[in-house]
């Protein structure tokens, strides 16, 4: 069984391009197929994985590994998500650093860097969408939030937008470490929501 856990998480990590939440439907299918967890249990573990700090995939591996087989299950799942991808990354990193100064690579990177800037802006927008901060439907509304509507569609939630703007400005204008901003925002959340 431990080897099976390793294989499932190795497979999961190989299929999740760009972001941990992609793997949730795959996890659900695998665990139900093996009779290791029900859909409700999967949702609980995903919630814990999402609210804990750290990579979502790693959090899910710890949560599901523990649920299925205790601490040995955690180890099997962690080895599954780290070993295959770790090897790929190290091989790619080796070639990347070797050919980094090449002219063709540099021209490609000139275009790629601009794309990455766009993708990271997109990541911010996506997080805001997924957490009911902008363009939310009724089931996503933030509890005790102050929603601004345009013709019955939520445009944004005001308290969250204020926190976004203040965090951005704090980073831009001061030298406050991002970790402090996260802690302060957590404390502010306690009063606001």
């Amino acid at each position: 069984m431990l080897f099976n856990i390793f294989l499932i998480f190795a497979k999961l990590s190989m299929f999740c391009f760009g972001g941990g939440y992609v793997m949730i439907p795959i996890i659900l299918e695998e665990l139900e197929k093996n009779g290791w967890a029900t859909a409700a249990e999967v949702i609980d573990v995903v919630a814990i994985a999402g609210m804990s700090p750290g990579p979502i995939v790693a959090n899910a591996a710890v949560g599901f590994g523990y649920k299925i087989a205790g601490v040995p299950g955690v180890l099997a799942a962690l080895l599954g998500i780290t070993i295959p991808c770790g090897i790929i990354v190290i091989v790619v990193a080796k070639f990347f650093l070797k050919f980094y100064e090449n002219d063709k690579i540099q021209s490609a990177l000139y275009g790629i860097r601009a794309v990455i800037t766009g993708i990271i802006f997109f990541a911010a927008v996506k997080l805001a969408l997924e957490n009911g901060i902008i363009g939310a439907s009724e089931n996503l509304f933030i509890k005790n939030g102050y929603n601004i509507f345009v013709s019955s569609n939520q445009l944004f939630e005001l308290k969250s937008i204020i926190i976004i703007v203040l965090s951005f400005l704090a980073l831009l204008k001061t030298k406050i470490h991002p970790i402090f901003i996260i802690c302060i925002a957590g404390g502010v959340g306690l009063f606001l929501f």
């Binding site: 990271i120 911010a124 997080l127 957490n131 901060i133 509890k143 951005f168 901003i181 925002a185």
Partner: peptide, 29 residues
Amino acid sequence: SISAVFNGIRPAIVGLIAYAAYRIGRAAI
């Protein structure tokens, strides 16, 4: 109260990521 703390943290993370895009943009654009 735990969910209230996270309601405060999530928008700060949005701000942080937007700022990362801005910083990266200064090297990329």
